[in-house]
Design a protein around this nucleic acid. Structure first.
Lengths: 288, 288
DNA sequence: GTTCCGCATGAATCGATAG
DNA sequence: ACTATCGATTCATGCGGAA
């Protein structure tokens, strides 16, 4: 028999809901908050000039709940304002360091299929930042779990074994990671670099999560073990929680939008799910 | 007969040498300055904590000499200091904006074949920043010159189509599929995005400046015309000048290291070269 | 059953038009 | 003058339907 994996979801403002979590309890925070001036319909649209002051109280709570050995991965990208890149992400990094965060690394997410567009002074924006923060210089990291196939596969081996559709999403050394890594374990594996090549999930998949599953999956494999606790304070459609379940990590999701909360509740009903509605935080109910 | 293309090189500290150039005279500045705490032997190793104050007087001169329609491309990447990414690049961007620079865009240079390496808490660093600054929201940009072949999706599909086309011509008569090839004619080129996939130059050159020729070439095609003036205030081994010559752009290179100056002088002797040694700025000599 | 094609659509950006 | 909304632009991808 296997140990039960918990998934807790909270409906509410994460700045407040996070206060209900104990300190030093989370192994990995991976999230994609609403970007400045984005998603106005659902999140109210935080202005880029007020973004830092909006986020800092949240990052302070995240600092509190994260274990000393844990990691915080923040997916974010500044938009163009008046023909110029906004600087709020950089200001955020500088201010978070004053809170005690160590800015350990910046991964690049290269979006292979991003939104089309061509403008007089600009090409398509095809990448986003994946900022890695830590509380200490020493943190848990299991590099061998995200190793990728070596280079010459593209020439001969994979063509025989895979259809063209599969080839697109697979990985190369120095260029990220892929779905079918398990097929290649044990042979010709190399460590990846800090550039991840992933397609945004789009098109006819039902949940329009801009966050591809491979993204939280990669960081969960890299920074956590089974039964560790993963937190997403802006869970949105719940991609992080779905992946955590599949990888047998405990997880906590928070979102202020009732529609997302209901959607995730429905989606996760078959698995172990703990619901935490506002004003009922101390009466958790196990559904299913 | 063709108009002569000039290449001027200066030996000296670019902060001083730049003062000799007239204002609003340069169409493109593309350079890769010594990174903080790097190249200690040749450049004296600017500390990461003093990097911003060291660079700001230079960027002020660059602002002066750049045409209002010109562009400044800065190749830079912060290094790891004490287990953490240094923030001097971000501080530099913020300070340069106070000088009047517009931070128009950040391109990512993905180094496909970077040095192998693995650290306990870190993967290989496989990307660098290419920061684009401008003096005005309107600047010269010729996007069609850097169009790239469409993705492997279209490529493979076109290949398959052409193969079936041949098959059909030999074995079949009449209508059928394959007629939509016309949809793809003229559509085999697409505009690039802001992620550049280039290999570092691993060649046999003595110096360690891993600036591949494709990098300045791409930006010169994109931001300048023939006979425009390109400036590299940290020319190093002169990659930028070599490319400028090949693309028939006038160019100016500056470097404080005599060895680099001599190397570039020797390298460029066959082309039109103007040497400007220190204290001889008003006596330019045409070599060859 | 394959292979091939049409089509919708996604953390976008600019410039013009409207209030 | 200053914001708010809207249309045009344009590429990679997966799925459904057709050959």
């Amino acid at each position: 028999m296997s140990v039960e994996i918990r998934t807790d979801i909270y409906l509410g403002d994460c700045k407040e809901e996070l206060k209900l979590l104990p300190a030093d309890s989370v192994d990995l925070i991976v999230t994609s908050p609403p970007y400045a001036d984005q998603r106005k319909d659902t999140y109210g649209g935080i202005g880029h000039d007020r973004y830092v002051e909006w986020f800092l109280p949240i990052s302070e709570e995240l600092f509190r709940v994260l274990k000393p050995t844990g990691t915080f991965v923040l997916n974010i990208k500044e938009k163009v304002v008046n023909g110029e890149r906004s600087t709020y992400v950089m200001e955020l990094i500088i201010e978070m360091r004053k809170q005690g965060w160590l800015w350990t690394e910046e991964f690049i997410w290269h979006k292979k299929n991003c939104y089309p567009g061509k403008w007089p002074n600009r090409f398509r924006d095809a990448w986003e930042r994946l900022l890695q923060f830590n509380k200490n210089k020493k943190f848990n990291m299991y590099q061998e779990r995200v190793m990728v196939p070596m280079g010459d596969w593209a020439g001969s081996r994979l063509k025989k074994l895979s259809e063209t559709d599969k080839m697109r999403d697979n990985s190369r050394v120095g260029s990220g990671f892929g779905k079918n890594i398990s097929n290649w374990i044990g042979r010709d594996m190399a460590y990846p670099a800090n550039v991840l090549h992933l397609a945004t999930e789009c098109g006819n998949k039902k949940h329009s999560a801009a966050f591809p599953e491979e993204l939280p999956e990669w960081f969960m494999k890299l920074f956590t073990n089974e039964k560790d606790l993963v937190l997403d304070p802006f869970m949105g459609s719940g991609t992080t929680l779905v992946v955590a379940n599949r990888l047998r990590r405990n997880s906590i999701g928070i979102d202020i939008v009732p529609e997302y909360y209901e959607m995730v509740k429905k989606q996760l009903r078959p698995v172990s799910l703990y619901l935490c509605e506002p004003k009922a935080h101390y009466g958790k109910i196990k559904a299913e």
